[in-house]
Amino acid sequence: MFSFIQLQADTLANAASNVVVEKVATTNNEISVLEFIFKGGFFLIPIAILLFYTFYVIIERYLYINKKAKVDPLLMRDVKDHLTSGNFELARSITERTNTASGNVIKEGITLIGRPIAEIESNMDRAADIEIAEMEQHLGQLGLIAGIAPTLGFIGTISGVIKIFYSISVTENISIGNISGGLYEKMISSGSGLIVGIIAYSAYHLLNGKIDNYALKVQKQILEFVNIIQKA
């Protein structure tokens, strides 16, 4: 009986020691997120550069569009009051103080008062198109990055797979560990490229949505301005 109990105790002790060893091994195999990313290979460098440039374009364009696309709801009311009273210079000075795209478009219309309505409206439309084109600057680069970044990641993965099969042909080692270990490292580049592409693609459409929203508002303002000078 005593020997049976001792045997059970030794078995439990061995099991516990195996669990400890396994936990230690698991802990030793853990790597940090940064180390995990760096395993992606050379193609992570251009992908990282594209990521930083994407954030730069997003922030710069967002701040610019947010500033220029502001529409002051009181602007047209003040312009209407001054135009009705014949204070054209004062009306133009109000549009200059706003420092917005809408102000520049209305200023163009005020400058042409006295010309045919069709000419005024046409010039205001051209002024609005110029303002919209300035807002759209560099947005095409986000669309380009949305296509390039995933492609670079895919090329990085293909390059890694080629290296794995070359290593197998040289060493004749077809172990699962050799294949999967090298493959998961190269898949990091594909994942990174897709993430950068998604960020650039989403920002491209969100910023274009803000510009489209402004374009609708400025067309309403042009129509309102034309109605004001027709009644004045």
Rank of each mutant, 00 (worst) to 15 (best):
F88N: 14
L112P: 03
T98Q: 14
I158P: 15
G109L: 00
E96W: 01
I130Y: 15
I164E: 06
V105G: 11
E108W: 05
I162T: 06
G153I: 05
E134Y: 04
S169D: 12
E136Q: 15
E108M: 13
I106P: 04
T157F: 10
I130S: 14
Y166D: 12
A101W: 00
S85A: 13
N178E: 15
I113D: 10
E136K: 10
H82R: 13
I176W: 12
G114R: 07
G143L: 05
S102F: 01
Y166H: 14
A146T: 08
L112D: 12
S169E: 06
I130N: 07
G177L: 15
T84E: 12
S93R: 04
S122E: 11
G140W: 07
E119W: 04
T171N: 02
S85Q: 11
G103S: 07
P116T: 09
G153A: 14
R92H: 06
E108K: 08
Q141N: 10
L139Y: 11
T95C: 07
L83W: 02
K163L: 08
E96S: 07
G177D: 11
I174S: 13
N173K: 09
V170G: 02
E96H: 15
D81Y: 10
H138C: 05
I155A: 07
I145A: 08
M135A: 04
S175N: 10
T157A: 04
L112E: 14
G103V: 02
T98S: 15
F165L: 03
T151V: 11
I117G: 13
I145T: 03
E131Y: 00
A91M: 01
E131V: 01
G109N: 05
E131W: 02
R126L: 12
E89W: 09
I168R: 03
I130T: 13
A101M: 01
I164H: 00
I113G: 11
R97F: 11
E96Q: 05
T95P: 00
T98D: 12
N123H: 11
R115H: 15
A118G: 14
S167N: 06
N87V: 03
N178C: 14
V170W: 04
E108L: 08
A127S: 06
F88E: 14
R92S: 12
M124C: 02
A128W: 02
I158G: 07
S93N: 09
S102D: 04
L152P: 03
L90M: 15
L144H: 11
G140M: 07
S175I: 07
R92D: 07
T95D: 06
E136V: 07
E134L: 12
N99F: 12
E134W: 04
T98K: 09
T84N: 14
F165P: 03
Q141R: 15
I145R: 02
G140I: 10
K80T: 08
R126V: 10
I113N: 03
I155W: 00
E134N: 08
S167T: 07
R126D: 15
D129M: 09
L142R: 08
I164L: 03
I164C: 05
G160E: 02
A149V: 03
F165V: 06
A128H: 01
G177V: 12
I162H: 02
L152Y: 06
G86C: 02
P150T: 11
V105I: 00
I132F: 00
I94G: 03
D125K: 00
I113C: 11
R92W: 01
S167D: 10
